[in-house]
Computed example of a mutant assay.
Amino acid sequence: MGTISALLFDFGGTLDGPAHWLDRFLGSYSAVGVEITRAELDPAFDHATRIGYGATRVVARFGLTDLVRFLVGHQFEYLRKSGPDQLRARLDDSGAAGRHRLVEAVTNSFVRETSAGLAHSRKVIGPLHSRFKMAIVSNFYGNLDRVLGEAKLDRFFATVADSSRIGIFKPAPGIFEDALKKLQCAPQSAAMIGDSLSKDCAPAHILGMRTVWLCTEPRCGEDSAAADVTIRSIDEVAQLQW
């Protein structure tokens, strides 16, 4: 394996905090007193995500807070119609004003946690900028450049492959190839860092990239052919010996 000269990062769950967005939303719901299980929130999360992917022209102008508010609003719409009975009753009884307050509370909780994760990653990414060409490869909503700009992370990345902008979603290889082409880098000289084996590591591995799996769950001990290296914190990227 040749020398690594480029690092490609996933965004959600990798650079913005050590957890999948669904799990962070679940924590934010709980933090504001809305009790719901992961299985109950999952279809609402998927529903809002699909709407977001289909609304790129609108979402493209959003920063992080407006994006999260948009997603939470659509999650609540789904839960009010198809959520667990007790929650549906609560949302109906709350009225429009009460639901709005809950949406804002969940949004603010999620954004606080995400902003803290981004601030931490900025400290990690900064020193790497002088050593590697860097890019982001993310299934996102068309506004990742704005989110990175708000977090003062944009200056570190030579290119951003935002799936909704280029019309290719992970795990399709084309989104990785788009980033590599813009970096003018061969796959063998690049490493992909992400929290998903199936969407980040597996397709990158097939292309010939080195793969780093960011995993903070107990299953991290399991072997995976798709991951060359397993790390438990984004901090460990700076310590890897290429």
Results as ranks from 00 to 15, higher is better:
M1C: 11
T3A: 11
I4K: 05
S5I: 14
L7M: 10
L8I: 11
F9P: 00
D10L: 03
L15F: 10
L15W: 11
L15K: 08
G17A: 10
P18Y: 02
A19M: 11
H20K: 13
R24N: 03
F25H: 06
G27A: 09
S28I: 10
S28F: 03
Y29Q: 07
G33N: 09
T37C: 07
R38E: 09
L41P: 00
D42R: 15
D42G: 00
F45W: 14
G52E: 12
G52H: 06
G52M: 14
Y53G: 00
A55S: 15
V59K: 07
G63E: 15
D66L: 12
L67N: 07
F70G: 01
V72N: 01
V72P: 00
V72F: 06
G73V: 08
H74Y: 09
H74G: 05
Q75F: 08
Q75V: 14
F76C: 08
S82P: 00
S82D: 13
G83Y: 04
G83K: 06
L87K: 08
L87I: 15
R88P: 06
D92G: 03
D93N: 12
A97Q: 11
E104T: 11
T107G: 06
T107A: 11
S109N: 08
F110S: 02
V111C: 12
E113G: 05
E113R: 13
T114L: 14
S115R: 15
S115W: 05
G117K: 10
H120W: 08
H120L: 12
K123F: 02
V124F: 01
G126R: 15
P127H: 09
H129Q: 08
R131M: 09
R131L: 12
K133Y: 03
M134H: 03
S138G: 02
S138R: 08
N139M: 10
F140G: 01
F140K: 09
Y141T: 08
N143W: 01
L144F: 02
L148A: 12
L148M: 14
A151V: 11
A151G: 05
K152N: 12
D154M: 13
D154S: 13
F157A: 04
D162G: 04
S164L: 10
R165H: 03
F169S: 06
K170F: 04
P171F: 12
A172W: 13
P173E: 14
F176H: 05
Q184C: 07
C185S: 10
C185N: 04
A190G: 02
A190D: 02
I193M: 00
D195H: 01
L197W: 07
C201E: 06
C201V: 13
R210C: 02
V212C: 00
C215P: 00
P218N: 11
R219Y: 02
D223T: 08
A227G: 03
V229G: 00
V229P: 00
D235Y: 04
E236Y: 01
V237T: 05
L240K: 06
L240P: 00
Q241L: 14
Q241T: 15
Q241K: 14
